[in-house]
Amino acid sequence: MHHFSVRIGAISYRVGSAWAAPIASLRRLYADYPVPEDGIATVTARIGPPRPWRRWIRPQVEIGGDHTLPDTVPMALRHALLAAEMAMNMQVALGERRHLLIHASAVERGGRAVIMPGDSGSGKSTLAALLGENGWRLLADEFVMIDMANDMVLPFPRAISLKNSAIPEMERRIADPARFGPLLRQTPKGELRHLRPNPEAIARMDEPARPALILFPSFGLDPAAEGMHKSELFVSLTEGSTNYIALGQTAFEALVRMVEDIPAARFTYPDSETGMAIVEQFAAEMGI
């Protein structure tokens, strides 16, 4: 088994692969990340052939690890990096029991965080990636972790998966080619390329931020914004959380505090520039 270990915020991973190449790609993508605390990875993700001969003959990749879902569809070996990333995500989505997970991206400025929940296709990852290169610190692109003891956002700055049109957009803005993974074509999600967050996001991964604003982006329509009822916000946040139910009363109380204390709104945006401008406008109103 080829493997490597890495710490991303609160999560210390051991990632294993039946093939050497995906591990080499991961090492490049996660260069400069710290190693697990005390050298002990507590979460295992792995990729391997669904049947032994699939390692060599028309190789297929199955995602696995400590926590798995039945009936995940095997992928082509050329998409192994994506499979490894999915395996790493799956461990957090299914296994995290310490911090409340919100399906969202998040960025920080001046110690205050903007949380952007949204389904895939809402553009939340791309917006966070863009803001992360424009005066904000990227905290998370997919899973926002809330420390329920103090309601702070804990950074989880894993590699961002850029999809389709977001790829050339980020390539134009980021000069350092070493921050990009290989371009993966014809994946189940279309074209895909991973982006390592900038050095500041990695260096400050242990520095939490106080959530100050929750914005639900949706992509592709005329620019508009509207407020949200607290009840609607509560439901949206629980629906997007994979561990809300398992965390019981503690999570209930944390979410009640969030919906009472943090202003929230929805907005639609036709392009990235407008999206960023809308976030900046909201942030300015909040004095962020």
């Binding site: 607290k230 009840s231 509560f234 139910i245 009363q249 209930f252 009640v256």
Partner: peptide, 22 residues
């Protein structure tokens, strides 16, 4: 239960079942 009034409704966390009700 833990209850919380919100938008004219009552948000309830029911401890024995671990479920949240509006």
């Amino acid at each position: 239960c833990r209850t919380h009034a919100i938008d004219g409704m009552t948000l309830v966390f029911h401890r024995p079942s671990g479920t949240t009700h509006f």
